[in-house]
Design a binder for these strands. Structure first.
Lengths: 200, 200
DNA sequence: CTACCTTTGCTAACACTGTTAGGTAATATA
DNA sequence: TATATTACCTAACAGTGTTAGCAAAGGTAG
């Protein structure tokens, strides 16, 4: 039954080519220029073929969102592994998160801004679980070693993530000039306020 | 020359009716359901009339964004006037910002998420100036009274705004269940970390 | 090898979207 | 009363996401 496998493999190839084409189009011309017809043209198939692989345009965006979180998680793991103490791990992950966002603005845009993340779509991103636990671990260690006041680790994670996202989000739309001046400082200010606030 | 004035007044009426209709449509069916044709139908005019008042659909969104900031500014002023010390003012404004966002999610969505705030559009929102100065003032007072280390007030404003936006943004998409539990706590955690961090 | 059936892929359409060209009828000015 | 302006509309263009229905190729069974 190698035939069925070959077909399945080919179908998989088309699927990934759809995602690759979509991603390339986004990198070239931005999210607003992404359309089903353009994807179809890029992969040299007709439009309905895309709907054999994805039920929606939103499903394609969802998949790209997952890709984004997978890559972000990898960067976070890499940063975390380099650091030793939980304090340094949290700090390094904050920097890595920030760096990922500004290195891959297109990813960051679809992971948040676009897709209009409703409750339903958010729950479909299993990668968010890995993301959470990645940050949760050093926070729990800090609590266990008594370096954090008696707070809910989920609450701390939530605060950490929220603030970091806010920093990235606001700084990404910043008005050209004073942007470069503040960019680095703002992150340092956050690190000082949140992360090193846990060391005491 | 009362005729020209009457015409001008009427034109103004149509303009505001466009904005009112757009806003009502958004409140009813969400941003995704807002279209020029639906607005035209609601105000009982043909489609091109709308383009006599707004060059774009984006221009309508921009105007609604400004409305949102105007209302937010009002709430901030109200909160600030109730408080006495600069510390309490900053704290009260954080609460007011949070409350505004969750009382008017549609406004908050267009002010940030939608419109894809680029550098150009952001610069067109003059209300952002008022917003900034509103928060900047108590921060500067804190610096002047020596309660803050020698930092750039703009940097502190930036951090304050960013974190607050992040909190709101992440908590708005939260997954139903643990949302209600954390909502209040997260803001308190922020206040404790940022505002009371300035008191020392 | 032929008949059948499933899969694969396409054309063409539907119902929308934002935007605009061009014409008509009403209104105010000379 | 003639003219110019304004107000407004119909109709179209070019694009969007999505789907119904059909043709052809592929593999399967008699």
């Amino acid at each position: 039954m190698g035939i069925a496998e070959r077909k399945k493999r080919h179908k998989e190839e088309v699927r990934t080519s759809i995602l690759a084409a979509a991603w390339q189009l986004v990198l070239q011309d931005g999210w607003q220029a992404l359309s089903i017809r353009r994807i179809a043209e890029a992969i040299e198939y007709s439009v309905p073929v895309i709907y054999d692989h994805f039920t929606n345009k939103e499903a394609i965006l969802l998949e790209l969102t997952k890709q984004g979180f997978r890559q972000l998680n990898q960067e976070l793991i890499r940063a975390k592994d380099k650091a030793k103490s939980p304090e340094e791990q949290v700090e390094a992950m904050a920097y890595a998160y920030w760096k990922f966002a500004f290195d891959n603005p297109a990813y960051y845009q679809v992971m948040y801004g676009l897709g209009i993340p409703s409750c339903e779509t958010v729950n479909q991103i299993s990668e968010l679980g890995t993301f959470s636990e990645l940050i949760l671990q050093p926070i729990k260690e800090l609590i266990a070693s008594g370096k954090l006041p008696e707070t809910d680790p989920f609450l701390k994670l939530h605060t950490f993530w929220s603030m970091l996202h806010g920093l990235v989000s606001i700084n990404m739309m910043g008005s050209g000039e004073n942007k470069n001046e503040l960019n680095g400082l703002v992150l340092q200010d956050f690190i000082r306020g949140f992360v090193s606030g846990m060391k005491t």
